[in-house]
Design a protein around this nucleic acid. Structure first.
Length: 622
DNA sequence: AAAAAAC
């Protein structure tokens, strides 16, 4: 099938789909002004939908850092001093001077030379049609994503698109999208990409496995291509310092590697250079890669701080900042490092860069912290509570600690009997501690189960080897700590076992999200005992909302447990993956009204469960 | 209390 045909088909499909788009985004439930003037009740033919309301020319090209980059009527104030915001501290810094300094003519440094050597990340030089046919990227079950609720809030929200062709991402990027077999944007992509292209900051809450990486990569790559077409030039002082235009941070090394791999595919032959930097690996090779030129830097925080302190990287030219798993990046362990990178180095201030935060979960107190990094942002929540849980069958079994191993063995035996394609289905087993991971792995191997493990005490080489071996099916059982809980896209994980349950329901959501990816189904089994009572209620609520069978004994634990102080709460009634904390009645923002003043049906401050909870409610699921 | 993240 050639591109023309498939896009034509998509256009036809999307016309039908538009009913859904209109109702979910624009109905009164949300109580938000979405979509601006074009979102009215009047019928608009499909080919005219989602256009800027005015008669402005469509999607002007990048016009330089000192001028407006608005793709439509929906952009806010942009980089380079266009903002008319009155907060202090924004005097002339961060590009307010416009076309002075480093923004002359000429090309970005160094990459043209290396460009000829660019490795084809599709692993198939001549036949792009066949590339990826066996990969997880193909065959996304989009039907599973239909009818997903979407909540947007914020000021002047760009309308979603229905097909990639509706957005001008450029020929090279479109070709890569085609090569990746992405035929139709996922819900988060439909909404997030127009928001990003309009230059807006974004806080996005979307299901695990729903295509978040592409959602922030496409606009970044597109934006950098336009900057390069305009002849962006980086400072030349400090010969060994490099100046990335985009920074993507993630909480684990393997996730950074994965994002790097994805971003390389998306940016193939676009002239946009992606480099990854993370700890546990020799820094010299990473330094050499950086010296060959970098537009998008993907990194874990520790290694990046190291590079910044060595002055090998400067963030002065960063125009795009993306935090993947943003709630994790801002939790207690990470927040100081992230603040240092974002606020205490030479990164442009909010409003002078574009900031995008993505996660499947977004507790409210984390949203509050995150808002420091954002300028007049749009909040986007896509999908049901509990991520892709309609696609994941969740089971909870009462298992004493002393019985866990034999119980796991029973599960694995049963699965082996069901083995598909002669190979054992991939099973990911989460445990609480690194020692626990080692000993369970050893025990499984001794008992004839091909297992490996991944956790923070293993060398980076061992970690990467373990992941490869698991993915390939060589060792179809992977025992893991929470290092593997978030973001990792491992195709064909049929079963996630919570051998030890986490203490936080959000961690549970991320863990089970390792299966049921890309619209496929999956199974998640949890071993529950007295040491997990604090999770009982949140777990029961989550399961109930995702139409799972809740064992009566679990409901009894749930009824008994009180919600005093923990953050494991998440009342029912909210079909969305999260809520904008700015809509809380407790949160007042000094007179700014982001929401058009109307908040309706079911999303009022009192909520369905309002009375049942004490002060200090913290989860975005509220 | 544990996990992750630099050397």
């Amino acid at each position: 099938m050639n591109k023309r045909t498939s896009w034509a088909d998509l256009a036809a499909n999307s016309a039908a789909e538009n009913t859904y788009a209109g109702s979910s985004v624009n109905n009164g439930i949300l109580g938000t002004t979405s979509g601006g003037a074009s979102r009215t009740n009047t019928y608009v033919p499909p080919h005219l939908r989602n256009r800027p309301a005015s008669s402005d020319p469509p999607a002007p090209a990048y016009s330089g850092p000192a001028s407006s980059n608005d793709r439509s009527a929906y952009g806010g104030a942009r980089w380079g001093g266009a903002r008319n915001d009155s907060r202090s501290g924004y005097g002339g810094s961060g590009g307010g001077g416009g076309r002075t300094g480093g923004w002359g003519g000429g090309r970005g440094g160094g990459w043209d030379r290396g460009r000829e050597q660019e490795v084809n990340p599709f692993g198939d030089d001549d036949n792009t049609e066949q590339a990826f046919s066996e990969q997880a990227n193909s065959g996304i079950n989009f039907d599973a994503y239909e009818d997903i609720p979407v909540e947007t809030s914020g000021d002047n929200i760009p309308p979603p698109v229905n097909i990639f062709a509706e957005i001008d991402l450029g020929e090279a990027l479109n070709l890569n999208i085609h090569r990746c077999k992405y035929v139709k944007p996922t819900p988060v992509q439909r909404h997030a990409i127009p928001i990003s292209l309009a230059g807006r900051d974004l806080m996005a809450c979307a299901q695990t496995g729903s295509g978040k990486t592409a959602a922030f990569c496409f606009p970044i790559i597109n934006g950098i291509m336009e900057m390069q077409a305009q002849g962006v030039q980086r400072p030349s002082r400090g010969a060994r310092t490099v100046y990335p235009l985009a920074l993507i941070l993630s909480p684990t090394r393997e996730l950074s590697m994965q994002i790097h791999e994805e971003a390389k595919k998306f940016s193939y032959q676009t002239g946009v250079k992606v480099v990854v930097a993370y700890g546990g690996a020799p820094i010299n090779q990473q330094l050499r890669e950086l010296e060959r030129g970098v537009d998008i830097l993907v990194a874990t925080p520790g290694r990046l701080v190291d590079l910044l302190e060595r002055a090998r990287v400067s963030l002065q030219m960063v125009k795009y900042l993306a935090l993947d798993e943003a709630d994790r990046m801002l939790d207690m362990g990470f927040e100081p490092q992230i603040r240092k990178i974002v606020e205490q180095m030479d990164m442009p201030l909010p409003g002078f860069r574009q900031t995008m935060l993505f996660s499947a979960t977004f507790p409210k107190e984390i949203q509050r912290l995150a808002s420091d990094f954002l300028y007049n942002y749009i909040f986007l929540a896509v999908g049901r509570v509990g991520s892709s849980t309609d696609l994941i069958v969740q089971r909870v079994e009462f298992v004493y600690d002393s019985d866990k191993r034999s119980h796991l063995m029973d599960l694995l035996h049963a699965q082996r009997a069901n083995g598909v394609h002669g190979k054992q289905a991939l099973t990911l087993v989460f445990v609480e501690t690194k020692k626990g991971a080692d000993s369970l792995e050893h025990w499984l191997c001794v008992n004839g189960f091909p297992a490996t493990s991944i956790h923070g005490d293993r060398s980076q080489q061992e970690r990467e080897q373990a992941l490869r071996s698991f993915k390939s099916g060589n060792t179809p059982i992977l025992v893991a700590t929470d290092v593997a809980a978030r973001g990792l896209d491992i195709p064909h994980v049929a079963h996630v076992v919570n051998f030890d349950l986490p203490n936080d329901i959000d961690d549970y959501v991320h863990r089970i999200g390792r299966t049921g990816r890309a619209g496929k189904t999956g199974l998640a089994t949890a071993f529950f005992n007295e040491s997990n009572v604090s999770l009982a209620r949140a777990l029961a609520d989550l399961m109930q909302e995702s139409n799972q069978e809740v064992p009566a004994w679990l409901s009894r634990y749930a009824a008994r447990s009180s919600y005093g102080g923990g953050r494991n709460r998440r009342p029912g009634g909210n079909r969305f993956g999260g809520r904008d904390f700015r809509r809380d009645s407790s949160y007042t923002r000094g007179g700014m009204d982001y929401y058009g003043g109307n908040s309706t049906s079911g999303y009022g401050a009192s909520g369905g469960y309002g009375g049942g909870y004490g002060p200090g409610v913290t989860s975005a699921w509220d």
